[in-house]
């Protein structure tokens, strides 16, 4: 796709908006539709678009496969870690109410935010890794 300047330019314009929208969906999931899963997929879609237009090698340079492999497991670890943290603070597994010692509702907020972040990281990394696997295989 080196010779098509219009898709390259449009991608350059769209990419920050896509990634910003993914972050918005991620952290605004408490208030509007969306959440970690959707945000992860949108974030991955942004990278897929970049890789399609600018080539797989450039995409690999920005988001190297080792980072993705860390991300795939990091998200699940964050999720389970929030659950274990709740247990250490004296609650049940995945009971976010104890995360804030003063106000259980604040604890719920914090827990949901962290858990959704974990889901988002895992889903985005998984989608990009699968895309790398498919796109890298054909060459």
């Amino acid at each position: 796709m080196q010779q098509y300047s219009v898709p390259r330019l449009i991608t350059k314009l769209l990419l920050p908006l896509i990634l910003l929208f993914a972050l918005y969906v991620q952290f605004h999931g408490d208030f509007g539709p969306g959440g970690g899963f959707q945000a992860g997929v949108i974030f991955a879609a942004g990278f897929v678009l970049y890789a399609l237009v600018y080539g797989l090698d450039n995409a690999r340079r920005i988001m190297p496969p080792w980072l993705l492999r860390v991300g795939v497991s990091l998200g699940v670890l964050i999720y389970a870690g929030v659950g274990v943290a709740g247990m250490l603070l004296g609650g049940a597994f995945l009971d976010y109410g104890v995360l804030d010692s003063h106000d259980p509702v604040h604890g719920q907020h914090l827990g949901i935010l962290l858990v959704e972040l974990g889901v988002g990281i895992t889903v985005a990394s998984v989608m990009i890794s699968i895309f790398y696997a498919f796109a890298g295989r054909g060459r």
Binding site: G29, D30, F31, P33, G35, V105, Q108, I112, E116
Partner: peptide, 9 residues
């Protein structure tokens, strides 16, 4: 109990 507007979340 949870305090966030999006019940789905």
């Amino acid at each position: 109990e949870i305090g966030i507007p999006n019940v789905v979340s």
